Computed example of a mutant assay.
Amino acid sequence: MGLSVFAIVLVVMAIALAFSVIKIVPQGREFTVERFGKYTRTLSPGISFLTPFVEGIGRRMNMMEQVLDVPQQEVITKDNAMVKVDAIVFIQVMSASAAAYRVDDLNYAITQLCSTNLRTVVGSMELDEVLFQRDSINSRLLTVIDAATEPWGVKVNRIEIKDLTPPVDITNAMARQMKAERERRAIITEADGEKQAAIARAEGAKQAAILEAEGRKEAAFRDAEAREREAEAEARATAMVSQAIAAGDVNAINYFVAQKYVEAFAELARSPNQKTVIVPAEMGGLVGTIAGLGELVGLAKEQQQDRRDDRQAARPAQRATTTNSPPPPQTAPRRPRGSVPGTE
């Protein structure tokens, strides 16, 4: 019985000795080793062996990046405005021995260091700068705190302002200012739109006026050309009639008289104020005039036929002269043209 108890005690002591000698360090951690209370070395991740009854584990340090929350605090800015500000800081232990033996309670020390420097940096700036220059605040804090924690074997990677809360009255004033600025921009945008619309309408009216003027110009040119051609036709007609009158043909005069008579009678019939049209009782003059026009047209056709016969007769004479053939027979004399009696 006594031997079994002694064996059990020996087994327990062996197990305890094994646990005190064999140390397994997890990834992302480092352990410091102390010999009789004095730091000797640092254990890296993996399995390590200690000298029994001489060496022991001192501090277990977290070597991964850590996030520390800086508590919210009230800070008075340079222009005497009270703001509430808090932040977060990202740190990483680079030297386990320095972080373990050069500062007591590393996280608390870094938190207090961030709080004091945050108050110093924000207090040296005006409210508008604090609200709109967070990047500048973060850069200044990072530079100062990283330099202060370097002897502790800690690297400060980032510092971010998490929240900035100005007083309620300042918040309301900022809201009114933002609303006024938005309204001002809206008014300016609306005015610019009206300006652009007015310019577009004026440009459209200008183009329309130009096109309308060009249309009137083209129409006037066409009208002038039509009037010119009409005047040329009238001039040719007048010249032909004048030649006929000079030759003693009175039917040309009858033609002009009948034309004006018919035009006047047509205008009288088309008048919107004329309800009754009175036809002259003596239509003999009009009939005679029309008959005279018919004779004039027939006489013109006869003259045209005579000219055609003369041209046909001249062509064989030219051929006979070229081939020394006997002269062609003489054409019969044209019958005398009598004058058509005029109307009374």
Rank of each mutant, 00 (worst) to 15 (best):
Ala7Phe: 09
Val9Met: 11
Val9Glu: 09
Leu10Phe: 03
Leu10Glu: 01
Met13Phe: 10
Ala16Phe: 02
Ser20Val: 05
Val21Ser: 15
Lys23Trp: 10
Val25Trp: 10
Arg29Ala: 03
Glu30Met: 12
Phe31Lys: 06
Val33Gly: 03
Arg35Pro: 02
Gly37Cys: 05
Lys38Phe: 01
Thr40Ile: 07
Leu43Phe: 01
Leu43Gly: 03
Leu43Trp: 01
Phe49His: 03
Val54Thr: 10
Gly56Trp: 00
Gly58Lys: 06
Met61Val: 15
Glu65Gln: 15
Asp69Lys: 15
Asp79Arg: 09
Ala81Trp: 02
Ala81Lys: 08
Ala81Thr: 11
Met82Arg: 13
Lys84Glu: 06
Lys84Gly: 09
Val85Gln: 03
Asp86Val: 04
Ile88Lys: 11
Ile88Thr: 15
Val89Tyr: 03
Phe90Ile: 10
Gln92Glu: 15
Met94Leu: 11
Ser97Phe: 10
Ala98Val: 01
Ala98Gly: 01
Arg102Tyr: 06
Arg102Asp: 06
Val103Ala: 07
Val103Arg: 07
Asp105His: 11
Asp105Phe: 08
Ile110Ser: 07
Gln112Pro: 02
Leu113Phe: 03
Val121Asp: 08
Val121Trp: 08
Ser124Pro: 02
Glu126Thr: 12
Asp128Ser: 09
Glu129Arg: 10
Phe132Thr: 14
Phe132Tyr: 13
Phe132Gly: 09
Arg140Trp: 03
Val144Asp: 07
Ile145Ser: 11
Glu150Ile: 02
Pro151Val: 05
Gly153Thr: 12
Val154Thr: 06
Val156Arg: 09
Arg158Phe: 02
Ile161Gly: 08
Ile161Phe: 04
Thr165His: 03
Pro167Lys: 09
Pro167Asp: 12
Val168Thr: 09
Val168Ser: 09
Ala173Ser: 06
Met174Tyr: 04
Arg184Gln: 13
Arg185Val: 01
Arg185Ser: 03
Glu190Trp: 03
Asp192Asn: 14
Gly193Val: 06
Gly193Leu: 13
Gly193Thr: 13
Gly193His: 12
Gln196Gly: 01
Gln196Pro: 01
Glu203Phe: 01
Gly204Thr: 10
Ala205Leu: 09
Ala209Val: 00
Ile210Asn: 05
Gly215Cys: 06
Arg216Pro: 06
Glu228Lys: 15
Glu228Arg: 15
Arg229Lys: 13
Glu230Gln: 13
Arg236Ile: 07
Thr238Gly: 02
Thr238Cys: 04
Ala239Ile: 00
Ala244Arg: 00
Ala246Phe: 07
Ala252Leu: 00
Tyr255Phe: 08
Ala258Asn: 14
Tyr261Val: 11
Val262His: 11
Ala264Lys: 13
Phe265Tyr: 10
Phe265Arg: 15
Ala266Pro: 00
Glu267Ile: 05
Leu268Met: 13
Arg270Pro: 01
Lys275Cys: 08
Thr276Gly: 04
Val279Tyr: 11
Glu282Tyr: 09
Gly285Arg: 12
Glu295Gln: 10
Leu299Asn: 04
Leu299Pro: 00
Glu302Val: 11
Glu302Cys: 02
Asp306Asn: 02
Asp306Ser: 07
Arg308Met: 10
Arg308Leu: 13
Asp310Asn: 05
Ala314Thr: 05
Ala314Trp: 05
Ala320Trp: 04
Thr323Lys: 14
Pro326Trp: 06
Pro326Tyr: 05
Pro327Ala: 15
Pro329Leu: 14
Pro329Ile: 06
Pro333Leu: 12
Pro336Phe: 04
Arg337Val: 05
Val340Arg: 08
Val340Ser: 12
